[in-house]
């Protein structure tokens, strides 16, 4: 069976972001970009399923400009069989992404779609659930453990206060949480090989989708700054401050 993994190119998680002075967004010029960490986990899971003989083909897909080719090269280097760029330069919001992915999934007919649970840029945590709705498939978000046996997926999810296990018939959408696996690093020979492979390309129009944004971002600003605190010199002083100044104990 085929699996589709959806990837997003985001500002690298180690970068300290800067809000643009005109309030239109976050500075991305000359900033290191990487694959969204949760998507790396989703991709790793797909590659492991292939190595286990459960999956026959791993197809990685992303949406965005030509610049997104770098995450697709990374995907090839860690084991994706085919990679596809749905090319557009419009601002992509989750519903548009889910709508494009729906059309892509209908074209490719996978039995499983893996995504990261959220992207670390917009922190929306929406795309997987929306894709499941649009396809009318089962969804298992925040996956901690995924097992596929025959036509069934058993997914243990991270929920508030513990874990929950669901079972669903394929096809299913699974979104990866932090502890589903630890992604591998691409090796240098595989990175070199990936450079020679083909990146397939599609336009949203080829999929019959208009990806225009539906929400308007009016302003992006810095969060309020906490007023500077003080350093106390002893536990006794700390207790005194918490009692008499902060009045929280």
């Amino acid at each position: 069976m085929k699996v589709v993994v959806a990837l997003k190119r985001v500002i690298d998680y180690n970068v300290k972001i800067r809000v643009k002075t005109d309030g239109t967004g976050v500075e991305t010029a000359n900033v290191k970009m990487s694959m969204n960490p949760f998507d790396e986990i989703a991709l790793e899971e797909a590659v492991r399923l292939k190595e286990a003989g459960i999956v026959s083909e791993v197809i990685a897909v992303t949406l965005g400009t030509q610049a997104c080719q770098d995450v697709l090269r990374t995907a090839l280097a860690v084991g994706a069989d085919r990679v596809v760029l749905i090319e557009t330069d419009v601002e992509l919001q989750p519903l548009a992404v889910a709508t494009c992915l729906k059309a892509f999934v209908q074209k490719e007919q996978p039995r499983l779609v893996l995504l990261g649970k959220q992207a670390i840029d917009d922190d929306a945590n929406q795309t997987g659930q929306m894709l499941a709705a649009l396809l009318g498939w089962a969804q298992a978000t925040n996956a901690f453990k995924l097992e596929i046996a025959g036509d069934h997926a058993t997914v243990t999810r991270e929920i508030d206060g513990g874990l929950e296990t669901l079972e669903a018939s394929l096809p299913v959408i699974v979104t990866a949480d932090l502890r589903l696996n630890t992604p591998r690093y691409a090796t240098l020979p595989n990175i070199m090989k990936a450079k020679k492979k083909t990146i397939e390309s599609l336009l949203p129009a080829d999929l019959g989708v208009d990806p225009s944004p539906r929400l308007k971002t009016l302003l992006v600003s810095d969060p309020p700054v906490r007023k500077p605190g003080i350093v106390v010199n002893s536990v006794t002083e700390l207790v005194e401050k918490l009692r008499n100044e902060a009045r929280v104990i």
């Binding site: 809000v19 539906r214 992006v220």
Partner: peptide
Amino acid sequence: APITDILAIESNDTFVRPIYAGNALAKVQT
């Protein structure tokens, strides 16, 4: 298109939500 994880309601159609792990705030209008 939903608006998720709202921190503040500015008006009937405008909301503030965190992005980049709360290192920036976006004011979003639906």
